[in-house]
């Protein structure tokens, strides 16, 4: 079989030599931290105006992560482009001629891009947390509190998994535009809207983003959110299942379809 370290090195070169990597990942970081900081500052100013029960279940960690709704979209774009541009440019044929073992190729790519996304995700999540807490003033929490470290690391995991999920979807659809056209509205609109509709809510909570984002909560059912039938790790597990399914689908498509 093709040498795995060689494929990993090759994929790393591919990722670091295109401009879109820097733009999407930097976008994810900046947007998440900035929006999180903004909302944290707003919350601090408005804290006294919050309803009683919201004040009681106030979750400073979640507040500092509120930029992730937008930041995750940049991660989705990153994941889609990593796989999608291979198809868009025709590079896929050159790549597969160089590494004919489909599994080595796809999982090598996903490993490198996923680890990079995870690293950026962790940096983003820690940065969001500390900046957000600093701006929350007297309502802040600290990293040493119970479950907070889990939530912060979970935030990084969530962003990394989001990127990997997108890679799987892009490998299944074999097109950047199509993948973005489906994933962005899904996470940005469909998932958000369905989670507000009474009947659909039961289904929507099993969507990857809804389930995965549970890991970032420190206070259970914070600020009037509905209780979920799974815990933070259970939620992450559901998301992992989604990711695994997307990757498996992508692999099957890559193996079966002509390049």
């Amino acid at each position: 079989m093709a040498s795995v370290p060689a494929v990993l090195r090759s994929e790393w070169t591919k990722i670091r030599t295109v401009a879109s990597t820097v733009w999407t990942l930097a976008g994810a970081l900046v947007v998440t931290v900035a929006v999180g900081a903004g909302l944290s500052a707003l919350m601090r100013a408005q804290f006294d105006n919050l309803p009683e029960f919201e004040r009681a279940t106030f979750d400073p960690t979640v507040i500092s992560f509120s930029g992730m709704v937008l930041g995750q979209l940049a991660m989705v774009v990153f994941g889609v482009l990593v796989v999608g541009t291979e198809y868009g440019s025709g590079m896929i044929r050159t790549s597969l001629a160089a590494v004919p073992q489909r599994a080595t190729f796809l999982f090598g790519k996903v490993t490198v891009a996923g680890l990079l996304a995870l690293a950026v995700g962790l940096v983003t999540s820690f940065l969001s947390f500390f900046v957000g807490q600093a701006l929350l003033g007297e309502h802040r929490t600290s990293i040493g509190e119970e479950n907070v470290l889990r939530a912060v690391i979970g935030g990084g995991l969530y962003m990394g998994l989001m990127a990997v999920f997108s890679m799987g979807v892009a490998a299944m659809l074999r097109s950047s535009m199509l993948s973005l056209g489906i994933l962005v509205p899904f996470f940005f609109l469909v998932s958000q809207i369905l989670s507000a509709v009474p009947g659909a809510k039961e289904v929507a909570r099993y969507f990857p983003d809804q389930a995965g984002s549970k890991i970032m909560q420190v206070v259970p059912n914070a600020m009037g959110q509905d209780p979920a039938p799974y815990g933070p790790w259970g939620g992450l597990g559901i998301m992992l299942l989604w990711v695994a399914a997307a990757l498996a689908g992508g692999y099957v498509v890559l193996k079966k379809r002509d390049a």
């Binding site: 440019s89 025709g90 590079m91």
Partner: peptide, 20 residues
Amino acid sequence: KALHGGRTAYHNLLCLAQSN
């Protein structure tokens, strides 16, 4: 044209070379 246009000629070849 089966190479990534956003990459330089050198890097396009480098990633191929590394994989083998």
